[in-house]
Amino acid sequence: MLTYTIRRLVLAVPTLLFISLVIFLLLELAPGDPMAQVPLTVPAEVKEQMREALGVGQPIWISFPKWLYQFFVIEPMVMIDYYFGTSLSEGQFRAISWQTRSPVMDIVVQRLPQTLWVVGVAYIVGFAIAIPVGIYSAYKQYSLFDNLGTFITMVGFSVPPFFSGVLVIVIFSVQLGWFPSIYDTTLVVNSWESFVKQLNQMFLPVMVLALQITSQTSRFMRSSMLDNLNQDYVRTARAKGLREQAVVMVHVLRNSMIPVITVMALSVPQIFGGAIITEQVFKVNGIGQLLITAIQANDLPMVQTLTFIFAVLIVVFNLIADVLYGLLDPRIRYD
């Protein structure tokens, strides 16, 4: 298992390099010019110098390794400097955003907590609802609960987040006035009231994201439980006189959780992607919204970095899912 993990980790490096090259080549075609906003009174040669300072128009065999060096060497150095007060990165050039002229990673780090709060809570809420629902509807297959649950998950699966988001805003914040429709990111949580306020404003975006996670996972959980409930070992467990609760919640559940846990790992990058739309609806200024504004403003270094972060998430969580599957299911042997 360890050798398998190491082999996969080593293989992930060329994959990520290749993906970043693909993103880079795609962005290379972009027509935008970061100097478009500069006043016309600025002389052409000054503009040329500004362009040079931002690194625009360099051939790809210079700009791509440079970006890699900035992302993988200089940014970790900056992080070490920040935490340990050293000065490793002094005099090094970091990747600069064309929009704000400040280092790309600084902005990403500023925006990341908002996304993590919303996505993380939605993830936990989603699975906390989906797993019990999946277990119960499989156990009572074709009951009223199961039929209703299947219908609701199908609806949750089909309603796109940009509609469900707008719908809950109309219902809960316009008609009922219970929750705010705009996420206030300047809120500092330092007292009980502000914590309640934070929960209050997180409720709607979390609800929308969690609905999607719940409907996907509970369908999966249900079918996984159904596969296991008809197996021979369940009959054996019942025949030897185990209580029904022990049969379902220990024997069946533990075996059904194996595929569900890999789905949990695989859905992490998915909900980060889904958060792009949800953040736009609720005006959460997380990394999804940052990506949209960066694309609209032609801020190529920012787009490159953010897209690459999404790619890293996908590759890493695919790897985690495969390794977890091997660890949890003794029948799977990769070596």
Binding site: T15, I19, V22, I23, L26, L27, L29, A30, P31, P269, G273, I276, L291, I292, I295, Q296, V303, L306, T307, F310, A311, L313, I314, V315, N318
Partner: peptide, 16 residues
Amino acid sequence: FLALPLLPLILVASLL
């Protein structure tokens, strides 16, 4: 292709 972040890339490409 499965490892590519598709939504961001579609957004970028739709502008390009």
